[in-house]
Design a binder for these strands. Structure first.
Lengths: 135, 135, 135, 135
DNA sequence: GTGGTCTAGACCACG
DNA sequence: GTGGTCTAGACCACA
């Protein structure tokens, strides 16, 4: 469980998931939450790879995905920049949230939980761990 | 996207995930939802492999995980049976649901959504797909 | 977890071990502890198989082992009898105990525990579960 | 009865038990005893398979169990490493020892030996093999 | 290079 | 018949 600060970005890496995926998720999160400002320069692939002690290919793969997401853009000879379009970020955020929700609902449904069960759980929230009857 | 009925179990297999994982998930689901009754015999490894047109080893791997989950039990020379303990099933179900919920909440949090946002979404849901303002 | 009383013998069978092995172990135990008297008649293979709802072959296999152990003897046309020689039982008991002890010590040694650790544990016995420093 | 040195690990394989189980037991032992240091790299699946002249799948199965025990951790594309958490090792060691002890006590009890008999035996031990009177 | 998944097919123990 | 172990060898994802 490594923790690294690189510019305004903060990374926390372990070995339980693919490394490129962790970079990707955490960069997405930083952009979605505005922890790194629109239009800002991302660390270079090389720099980030060095800081995180990874192979540059691993970082590059994450950066490619970010660009495909529309969250970053490469500028020739200058590096990678966070998009300056708030719309891009917003639409990405809702699209990803939708995917998360769908997949979550599918999982819960496969265990026989209905919307109501989950809703009930959300109302209880952190106060009580999973109870007995249903959820 | 294959669909197969094997005894009281229904399988739908594609190539987007490991095969043994799909068998595992769908068998878990069938047991958790009571689609296959407690104490019932599961299809034999060979039979299921043949029906799903896959290698017996692949099916066996899924069956081993099911047993580790406490959802099934092997009887030498007789076959694989669903546990007859409702407690095992219930505790497995809540434990897995808890994992799903935690991981989902973490994902949503990483996009900057709070409990309230999700709650709000659930209240709208199904009627309206993902909206524009936040979620 | 089935429980069955057959004559003076008591069996408790589950599916976590080979069935013939459970019969064997429990019959050995009954003879070693004198729960069935020297010279007594054992249940017939058929009878025991019926009571335990097993294949007679399974029971037979256990009976063959018992005879190899010198704990029982077949009498033509009469059935299987517990040996009437206390020496046979005693020597079997010590030999088997020796095997158990050797194998146990090997296991504990493989985890880096020495005689002294085990001795210490035995002195504490059931009072305290496994503690922190060493054992 | 093969003997093989692989890195800092020593393996001794025969055909009396499943091969993967022997690898598992001996690797557990090496880790529990500190014969391989915390955080060290294990031999790769392929390397060990080649040295022990067995199929990589067989080695992999043992490695999967080791990871489930919390004794090792896989790092994608890098290899398998011994956990660097002494707590994991310690808790595994005591848990396994407890299982060994319980099962041993049950065996001895089934032969009619009590705690005191075993204690007595331990006090004699090594000097004298199994005696005649009781144990 | 690493581990992970999968297939095809053999042989074994158990009932 | 059941599940369990093992081999040989392919192909994939990740670093």
């Amino acid at each position: 469980m490594e923790e690294q600060q690189v510019g305004s970005l903060h990374f926390q890496i372990d070995f339980s998931q693919p490394l490129y995926e962790q970079i990707l998720d955490q960069a997405r999160s930083a952009i979605a939450k505005g922890e790194i400002a629109l239009g800002d320069k991302m660390p270079s692939v090389r720099e980030l790879a060095q800081e995180l002690r990874m192979n540059p290919n691993t970082v590059m793969r994450a950066y490619q995905e970010l660009e495909r997401d529309g969250l970053t853009e490469k500028r020739r000879g200058q590096g990678t920049y966070v998009t300056s379009s708030p719309e891009h970020v917003a639409s990405f955020r809702t699209a990803l949230a939708a995917r998360y929700i769908d997949s979550f609902m599918e999982q819960m449904e496969s265990l026989g939980f209905a919307w109501e069960d989950i809703e009930k759980y959300i109302h209880q929230k952190k106060d009580t761990p999973l109870g007995g009857n249903g959820l």
